[in-house]
């Protein structure tokens, strides 16, 4: 039977841990709400822009004379060339399975890609993973703070990735991150980012363009890609906090259970001690 004083000490320390995890849970809940608002609000804009870019892209991609960077982003690269992946993980830990889930998604996605594919990494934990697995890292956006995602940051990252795609002859660019579905659902994904796949079928039938097609694409396409990265980053940080909230809630609950368990043992030990003391006193009194 464990020592009573030890038990008392353990109850206190488990209680302290519980207080900490509960505080962390509350912080995560508040932050989650804030990020969630941003991510949800950005969604219609991102979707509309995507529809527009892919809808218009059909015409641009089928025009062989189309010059300029924007048109190049619709053209698939050499399929045997290495690809690039923009890999979004977290910078902070204590967020449950968030990182291992997205890492698993990355590994399974990379299996289908040619050797020598490069990573563009966001988040310290993601970088650590890349180092562990020995992946080729082309860029690590170290200064970027996911907690303060600004559109300008996303634009910079998008630009870096696009430049790499155009200049290094990559076969494609992928986006690996986590999609935020609801407070309790977030799902890692691995999807194609570049080249842009024009939407089929419901193409805009001969739209009136103002100004001309190439000029419009030259502005539309970067906007679309930047917005997509921006939205991806927002969803990632929102998912991270959803995951952290969940992990902290579990930790708090587990600490509660543990405390109950130890308290029970403690009470039993205490009771036993009292009983044996009484027995001693009574037998002592009888001996007199």
């Amino acid at each position: 039977m464990a020592n009573i004083r030890d038990l008392r000490q353990r109850i206190t320390s488990v209680g302290n841990i519980q207080k900490i995890t509960r505080a962390m849970e509350m912080v995560a809940t508040t932050k989650l709400r804030r990020f969630q608002e941003g991510a949800v609000a950005a969604k219609p804009y991102a979707e509309e822009l995507e529809r527009l870019a892919r809808g218009l892209g059909g015409a641009a991609a089928s025009d062989p004379d189309a010059a300029g960077d924007a048109a190049g982003l619709f053209r698939p690269g050499d399929p045997s060339a290495p690809a690039g992946i923009l890999f979004i993980g977290s910078t902070r830990g204590l967020c449950g399975a968030y990182n291992s889930n997205v890492q698993r998604q990355l590994e399974s996605g990379m299996k289908g890609l040619p050797q020598g594919s490069k990573l563009f990494v966001i988040g310290k934990k993601a970088m650590e993973h890349a180092g562990r697995m020995g992946h080729d890292v082309a860029a690590y956006f170290e200064d970027f703070d996911p907690e303060k995602t600004r559109f300008a940051d996303a634009a910079g990252i998008s630009k870096a990735v696009v430049t790499a795609f155009l200049e290094e002859g990559l076969s494609g660019m992928f986006l690996c991150g986590t999609r935020f579905l609801s407070m309790v659902r977030y799902q890692p994904y691995f999807e194609s980012f570049l080249p842009i796949v024009p939407s089929e079928g419901e193409l805009l039938s001969e739209p009136l363009l103002e100004p001309s097609g190439p000029e419009l694409l030259e502005r539309l396409v970067p906007s679309y890609l930047e917005t997509r990265v921006f939205h991806g980053l927002l969803e990632a940080i929102t998912s991270e906090y959803a995951s952290r909230r969940f992990a902290m809630k579990n930790a708090t609950d587990a600490a509660g259970d543990m405390k109950k368990e130890i308290t029970r043992t403690y009470n039993r030990a205490r009771q036993q001690k009292i009983t044996s003391e009484i027995t001693e006193i009574v037998s002592g009194a009888e001996a007199l």
Partner: peptide, 8 residues
């Protein structure tokens, strides 16, 4: 009922 159009 303006015709389909995309503009900056």
């Amino acid at each position: 009922h303006h015709t389909t159009m995309v503009a900056l």
